[in-house]
Design a protein around this nucleic acid. Structure first.
Length: 148
DNA sequence: AATATGACGTCAC
DNA sequence: CGTGACGCCATAT
């Protein structure tokens, strides 16, 4: 685990941000990346969760697979990242449903989650808010969402 | 030490 | 609106 201090800080920030996600809600890697101040590294967020330590295999990890709701993080397409092991994604979907999140399976087996219903967007930057409002022509605009 | 991958996102075409 | 290319950087070979 030769991670530099900076990298370690990044990991820490990511884990903390993920812990902020309330049960029954989901968000994207990109959003977490933004929250931690590195919007250009959504992939690294995935790396963090991938290397999320297990409370049983590690001595005293500050964050581990049990206290970090890694399951609530999906990709921007609103789909559970297929990653390498299908069972993993399926497991994630199951964990989400266990929290009350409705996961629908697409024709290709993609595990889709409705962001408009379960999406969690905490510290949306003012610039984005402005951009949202700036959109002039919207037709299929559904209501916004807010969990907290 | 160098090269290949990946739990992603955005832009260009 | 689908596909391709690039950026990013910790891990794995």
């Amino acid at each position: 685990m030769p991670r530099s201090d900076e990298a370690q800080a990044f990991f820490h920030a990511v884990y903390s941000a993920v812990q902020e996600i309330p049960p029954g809600k989901v968000t994207s890697y990109g959003h977490i990346a933004k929250l931690v101040g590195t919007p250009q590294r959504p992939r690294q967020v995935g790396v963090c969760l991938k290397h999320l330590p297990d409370s049983t295999t590690t001595p005293t990890p500050r964050f581990h697979h049990t206290n970090v709701p890694w399951q609530r993080v999906i990709n921007a397409k609103g789909i559970v990242s297929p990653r390498s092991q299908p069972s993993g994604a399926h497991n994630q979907a199951a964990a989400l449903e266990a929290e009350g999140v409705t996961v629908t399976t697409g024709p290709l087996g993609e595990l889709m989650v409705d962001f408009g219903e379960f999406g969690w967007f905490p510290a949306v930057l003012p610039s984005e808010e402005a951009q949202r409002v700036g959109a002039s022509d919207e037709e299929g605009e559904e209501g916004s969402e807010n969990g907290d």
